[in-house]
Amino acid sequence: MSTQPILKTVGVTKRFGAIQALTEVNFEVCEGEIMALVGDNGAGKSTLIKGIAGIYAFDEGDVFFQDRKVTINSPRDASQLGIEVVYQDLALADNLDVVANMFLGRERTGPFARLDEASMEKSCVDTLNSLAVTTLRSVRLPVASLSGGQRQSIAVAKAVMWNSKVVILDEPTAALGVAQTRQVLDLVQRLSEKGLAVVMISHNLHDIFEVADRIAVLRLGQMVNVFERKNSSQQDIVHAMTAGRLKSVPGMAVE
């Protein structure tokens, strides 16, 4: 695990009208590291992620990628840098098969604008193998027929297939049963072993303590603390999430 952060936000702030969604948040993730991002509802987790993903721009503050200051104005910018987000709803087209979904929007074509199915299928199988996603019967099955864990795996594989460096997972285990959660957590672990930086949003502290290296706690739009997993307990995290010290409480005068 390198200590040099690959992605870093410095003092980012985001307001939606009168609501202060993020206040001077510093956040970072390193190569090969699994960084958990936790916080109660409305803490600003999604706002932070969407800002990094280019869904909207931060009002203030800077984003650094590999020590370079970058401006991310669209999801396309983000994926060009190598930042991929797997949203909770996975954004898979149920009627298309696994290969079509993994290459959606970036299909390879040959002569006569013909889709190069053979080459795409091969890369797809290779990627899934490298991530040890082996429960699929075939990559030509429509996604509709897959289990929740398989879908999550496909969505993650889709995100990492493009030489991405940072993968952000939004609640990857929220809708899954025990065995499927296991599958996905293993997959997350493999991503970091492959040297990717992983940001994992989750409400499930059990899952987080199983895989995360560090845990960043947001509360009311502010970064309360970043814990090393080894040196902290679930109680520490819960305490930080619910009663962490803030520089200022929104709606109250700063003393």
């Binding site: 999801p75 396309r76 949203y87 709803d89 996975l90 954004a91 898979l92 087209a93 149920d94 009627n95 298309l96 079509a100 979904n101 959606l104 929007g105 970036r106 299909e107 074509t109 604008a113 013909r114 889709l115």
Partner: peptide, 28 residues
């Protein structure tokens, strides 16, 4: 049939019909 099954355009038609939001996020 070639257009529908073997070109990007056809693939995108199926994708938009299957999940418009997924298609949009894929840059279509």
């Amino acid at each position: 049939t070639y257009v529908a099954q073997n070109t990007k355009f056809g693939r995108y038609v199926y994708a938009v019909g299957g999940n418009k939001e997924a298609a949009r996020r894929a840059g279509i």
